[in-house]
Structure formats: C-alpha cells, structure tokens
C-alpha cells in the first residue's frame, strides 16, 4: 500500500495527542487539577525543600534552594527533566521536577530571591573539620590537582551565574553530591555543561576532604 509521507503525519499526530490526553485523563481521575499556578508550584517545592527553601533532612537530604543562583536552579531543573542528573535514587527526579520551561524560570527566580535564615535544625558537619575545610575551600589541594573552590564559587561561597552558591548547604547533601558526582551528574555527554567541570575535581577529593569542605560550607551564612 502506498502511503504518502504527509498521509501518515496526521494519524501519527492524532495518536500522540490521544495518548497524552489519556495520560492526563488517568491522572485527573480522582482529584481536582487547578491550572498550573506559580503559587501552587511554590507550595509543591516547599513541601520538600522547606517553607523558605532552606532544605530538609528527609530520608534523603533535600538541598537548600533559597538564595541559590537562578541560573543554577534553572540548569538543574532542566537536567532533571533531561535525565542528565539524578538517576540513582528510588525517586524519579525527572518526574517530580516535571515543569514547563516557563515555570522553571519563574520558580528559579522566586527561590533565588529568598534569603532564608540558617536552618536551625540543618544538619551541619563536625565542627572540628571546619578549619580544614576552609583551607581546602580557599587554597585547594594542589598535590591532588584540586583547585580552590573559591575561584569559581566565590570567596564566600555565594556562587555566580551557573556556579552554585554553596554557603549554608546541608552537610549530608554536599557530601552525597561530591561523593556520587559521576554517578549522578552530567549523565549525557551532550548535556554535561558545567557538571563536566566538577567531575575530575570531585573524583580527586578524598572522603575526608569532602567531609571537611562540606562541614565548612554548612556553617557559612
């Protein structure tokens, strides 16, 4: 049977439309879906990330996003959806962060404007590691080819543009991220972006060095 290229496009498009409508219908079966609103989405984010984006120590450490650079937040939200980040937890991060590009931008802007007080219950690292961590942060570990973090993340770890703010990040989160970098970040060669920069650095750091830097950062305001 000879079918023109155009002739297949319309049924194919209808099939795609039908499938997506069906998926939405199943999801809507038992609950009321308001139109996506920024307020509703912010509430959804803060359910896990804390009322002012300060993070929370759930079963998994949930990072502080308040005061984060908006460019970094947008990049991460896109990375989740593109699955170049976060494939190693039994939570489908690509699904829970499913957002339209416009919503990503709005949320990134919202949370980057927040300046939450240090989270009093935030798990911080051992105090006795802070001095060592500060030295690594400011001077790197030359013998291990680890550059000073301050060079990209700023002298006060406030971050800039795509380089995230690290100040005040939860200790167990920072430790987890650095230890698991190559397993969880830059998972597509094509989508590596700045995640690729961190891979050799994270891999060159020992567990003790990671713990020390994470501890230092957890106390920064």
């Amino acid at each position: 049977m000879k079918v023109s290229g155009y002739g297949l496009a319309l049924p194919a498009a209808m099939l795609v439309l039908a499938c997506s409508v069906n998926a939405a219908a199943v999801d809507q079966r038992s609950r009321h879906h308001p139109a996506p609103s920024l307020g509703g989405k912010v509430g959804y984010c803060t359910d896990c990330h804390g009322a002012s984006g300060q993070g929370y120590r759930g079963y998994y450490p949930i990072p502080r996003i308040g005061g984060q650079t908006s460019e970094y937040l947008e990049n991460q939200l896109r990375a989740f959806v593109e699955r170049s980040r976060g494939q190693s937890m039994p939570v489908r991060l690509s699904k829970v962060h499913a957002l339209s590009p416009a919503m990503r931008a709005s949320l990134a802007g919202h949370f980057s404007d927040l300046e939450p007080k240090p989270f009093t219950r935030a798990p911080r690292g051992p105090r006795n590691l802070v001095a060592v961590g500060q030295k690594i942060y400011e001077q790197g570990v030359p013998e291990a080819n680890v550059p000073a973090c301050a060079v990209c993340h700023g002298p006060e770890a406030a971050g800039a543009g795509p380089n995230p703010r690290l100040a005040g990040q939860l200790y167990p989160y920072t430790v987890r991220v650095l230890r698991n970098w190559t397993r969880e970040r830059g998972l597509h060669a094509s989508a590596q972006g700045t995640a690729g920069v961190m891979a050799p650095i994270a891999q060159s750091m020992s567990k003790d060095q990671i713990a020390a830097v994470a501890a230092y950062l957890s106390y920064l305001k």
Binding site: A24, D27, R31, H32, G58, Y59, I62, P90, R92
Partner: peptide, 25 residues
Amino acid sequence: YRDGSPAANIPSCVVCHGPNGEGRA
C-alpha cells in the same frame, strides 16, 4: 507514594519517608 503527582502538586512520599516507608529521626 513513589512519584507523588506533580500535576496536582503532591510531592513524592519517598523523599522524606523512605523507599519502603522506613522513616528517619
């Protein structure tokens, strides 16, 4: 429980309560 429902702004329960409802602290 695992994925929540982003469309309805319902978060995943796993993130806080654990993959098998273990809880913590």
